[in-house]
Every structure is written in C-alpha cells, then in structure tokens.
Measured scan of single mutants.
Amino acid sequence: ITGDVSAANKDAIRKQMDAAASKGDVETYRKLKAKLKGIR
C-alpha cells in the first residue's frame, strides 16, 4: 500500500513540477524536487 501512495505522490509532484517549470517558477520547482527526493 505504501508503494502505491508514494507512486501517486510522485506523479502528482511531477505534474506540479511541470506546471512550475512552464511558469518559470524556479523556487517551487526546487521545493518539489526536494520533496521527490524525500519520498524515495
């Protein structure tokens, strides 16, 4: 179950990262990237 949750989280975070990148929001992008590392 835990694996599914983190996989879903990663997917959601990647989508947020894409949105931040397209807006040029480097700050948010970095925060999300750090979150991704924390999940692993």
Rank of each mutant, 00 (worst) to 15 (best):
I1M: 10
I1T: 09
I1C: 13
I1Y: 13
I1V: 10
T2Q: 09
T2K: 11
T2A: 11
G3Q: 11
G3C: 15
G3D: 10
D4I: 10
D4S: 11
D4E: 10
D4F: 08
V5Y: 10
V5A: 09
S6W: 07
S6A: 07
S6N: 10
A7F: 12
A7H: 10
A7Q: 10
A7R: 13
A7S: 11
A8F: 13
A8I: 11
A8R: 11
A8T: 12
A8W: 09
N9V: 14
N9P: 05
N9A: 13
K10R: 14
K10D: 08
K10G: 08
K10L: 15
D11F: 03
D11L: 12
D11E: 11
A12Y: 10
A12C: 07
A12N: 07
A12I: 08
A12L: 12
A12M: 12
A12F: 11
A12T: 11
I13D: 01
I13Y: 04
I13G: 01
R14Y: 08
R14L: 13
K15I: 08
K15F: 06
K15V: 07
K15R: 11
K15Y: 05
Q16D: 03
Q16Y: 04
Q16F: 06
M17P: 00
M17V: 02
M17F: 02
D18I: 15
D18R: 15
D18A: 15
D18K: 15
D18S: 11
D18H: 14
A19K: 07
A19Y: 11
A19G: 02
A20R: 01
A20S: 02
A20P: 00
A20G: 02
A20Q: 02
A20M: 02
A20H: 01
A20Y: 02
A21K: 14
A21P: 01
A21N: 04
A21C: 15
A21S: 05
S22I: 09
S22E: 11
S22N: 07
S22P: 01
K23V: 11
K23Y: 04
K23S: 08
K23W: 03
D25F: 01
D25I: 01
D25Q: 01
D25G: 00
D25L: 03
V26Y: 15
V26K: 08
V26L: 14
V26T: 09
E27L: 05
E27F: 03
E27I: 07
E27P: 02
T28P: 00
T28F: 05
Y29S: 00
R30V: 03
R30M: 11
R30S: 02
K31D: 01
K31E: 04
K31I: 05
K31W: 05
L32V: 00
L32T: 00
L32D: 00
K33S: 05
K33H: 06
K33M: 14
K33L: 15
K33P: 00
A34D: 04
A34I: 06
A34Y: 04
K35S: 06
K35E: 04
K35P: 00
L36I: 03
L36G: 00
L36E: 00
L36A: 02
K37V: 08
K37A: 14
G38W: 13
I39G: 06
I39H: 06
I39W: 12
I39L: 14
R40F: 13
R40D: 11
R40K: 09
R40G: 12
R40Y: 12
